[in-house]
Design a binder for these strands. Structure first.
Lengths: 135, 135
DNA sequence: TGCTATCATTTGACAAGTCAACGATTGATT
DNA sequence: AATCAATCGTTGACTTGTCAAATGATAGCA
């Protein structure tokens, strides 16, 4: 594998990422990162920002800024952990839960971003990406 | 395929992109995008910025800015097309050719960014990404 | 010739990520 | 109890991408 081929492949990943992220946003109305963040928070119920950071493998600073946006939109509540004032606890608002349900309901399983790939291919892709992302 | 699963997969792509791009940069000393840009220019010999934009599927503005940086580093020469002053012609300097050769030579085929994947898997990945990027 | 449309590049404003430095809290050590 | 170190979150500076408006150049046409 020549370096040239490596760069071509990596550049393809970059392009795919860009395409797919903007497609997700136009289809759902949610930024991919913030959707994922809402999901993480929703699944945890209540959590600190560090937990989000670890779950999403994203920078602290990015977490803070996205949560600020989500808070402004009324999708998320934040309050200091009274037992440890360093931490901030985050959880979804009812608004968020509602908006996400609506979004999921409107989501057409057959014609979304990834519809160029079969279920099999998506599974394949997922495996490959997991390998790539494991340290 | 639930929306949740889609977002998980797309987010994996994002993470892979980030990992892989920074790894490429630390391994080679070149930003992935600018390496790819140098390759494109090198392969074309001389070309306009629009050609680069089309080849790389990147925004005009990004091309201009990357070329500015590459010019400052002495990797690229730009001059207006005398036959059509709207266009700028771009080509590599000898410095760039030399630096790229050195980089390629130093590149260890066995232990680079993608070494977690077999050649087969990389080929698979390439096919999947091509599908995702086609449209 | 002069208008107008189009084309190529540049610039400005924004989004989303990184890293590094900072402030506030907490916990540990002496 | 006082200090010192570690942890959590925030902020600022920077990178790299986008889109949209501005600039400059050319081409077609009345």
């Amino acid at each position: 594998m020549e370096l040239r081929d490596v760069s071509r492949l990596l550049y393809q990943i970059k392009l795919a990422d860009q395409r797919v992220a903007t497609a997700f946003e136009t289809e759902t109305g949610f930024s991919l990162t913030r959707y994922e963040m809402l999901m993480v928070v929703g699944e945890k119920g209540v959590c600190s920002q560090s937990e989000i950071k670890d779950a999403m493998k994203i920078d602290n600073a990015a977490v803070t800024r996205h949560l600020k946006i989500l808070e402004d939109k009324g999708y998320v509540l934040r309050e200091r952990n009274t037992a440890n004032h360093r931490e901030v606890f985050v959880r979804l608002t009812d608004d968020a839960a509602h908006a996400l349900q609506t979004c999921e309901r409107n989501h057409d399983t057959s014609s979304h971003v990834m519809s160029v790939l079969s279920d099999d291919e998506m599974a394949q892709l997922s495996v490959l990406l997991k390998k790539l992302n494991q340290v």
